[in-house]
Amino acid sequence: MVPTLVGIGASLIAPKIMSQFRDQKVKVIHAMPGRLRLQCDSWKHPIVAEALGKQVQSHPLILTSKASEITGSLVIEFIVPHISQDELDEIMTNIVQIASNAILHKDAMLMNGMKNTLQFIDKGIKKQTNGFADFDSLFILFLLGKGIQSFGNAPAFSASLLYWSYSIIKGDSNR
């Protein structure tokens, strides 16, 4: 009865593990007795690579682990030449979980792109105005103008635009 329950449990858990593995698009690059090389594009980040390199090595069956942020790969050397399928599944689950947790600590690529674009625009405005204006000052002028213009028709909305302008000028971080 116990082996049957374990088998049922494994059949329910294994698809979830494999779906996480596929979601990260982890590829087995090379496998040989006692050694495994995995690769994933989402591991091409210093935070993720560092977490994988340090935390994967803490598994009792793993002798060494080395992650590369450049290639997004992870090389694992085991303490024995052969491991069971269950042990490999456990290790892979651990790797996927470590990478998933580490990804939460890196900056979002979309936000980085928006920040870089805003910095590029800001530098362009400063160059064109010889340092007289930047993006923030022009944005504040826009908000002030819209707030004054719409005060007669929508005083509540206008007040919020004026307050937002004031908050930006004062440097209020709670806006």
Rank of each mutant, 00 (worst) to 15 (best):
K16Y: 12
P3Y: 06
I62P: 02
L144H: 08
M32F: 14
E77C: 09
L74D: 00
Q55A: 09
L88Q: 09
F157P: 05
Q57K: 15
L161S: 04
P15W: 09
G7W: 10
K123S: 05
H45F: 05
G113P: 09
S11Q: 06
P33I: 01
M109A: 14
K44H: 04
Y166P: 02
T93P: 00
F21Q: 00
P3D: 01
S150C: 07
S173H: 14
D86F: 14
S150E: 10
Q24R: 13
D86A: 12
D134F: 01
P46G: 07
I125M: 03
L12I: 12
L118W: 12
L110W: 12
I98L: 04
E90R: 14
A14H: 11
F21T: 04
L5M: 09
K25Y: 00
D122T: 02
M111P: 01
A108L: 08
F151H: 09
V6F: 15
G171L: 01
F142C: 11
K146Q: 10
L104K: 07
A154V: 13
D86Q: 15
E69G: 04
I76T: 05
S65W: 03
H59P: 00
T93H: 11
L143Y: 01
S167D: 05
K54Q: 12
L63S: 14
G113A: 15
I140P: 00
G124N: 07
M18S: 06
A156P: 03
S65Y: 05
I83G: 00
K54H: 10
K127M: 12
K54N: 10
I76W: 09
I79F: 09
P33Y: 03
R37I: 14
G53K: 02
N130P: 00
T71I: 01
E87P: 02
E77G: 02
T93S: 13
K54M: 11
N153D: 08
L61Y: 12
S165L: 09
P155Y: 13
I62Y: 00
L161E: 03
A67K: 01
L118E: 06
A99P: 03
K115D: 10
L36G: 06
D23R: 14
I76Y: 07
A51S: 09
P155F: 13
A99E: 04
V2T: 11
V6N: 10
P155W: 13
M111R: 15
Q55I: 07
S167Q: 08
I125R: 03
I121T: 03
G113I: 14
G131V: 08
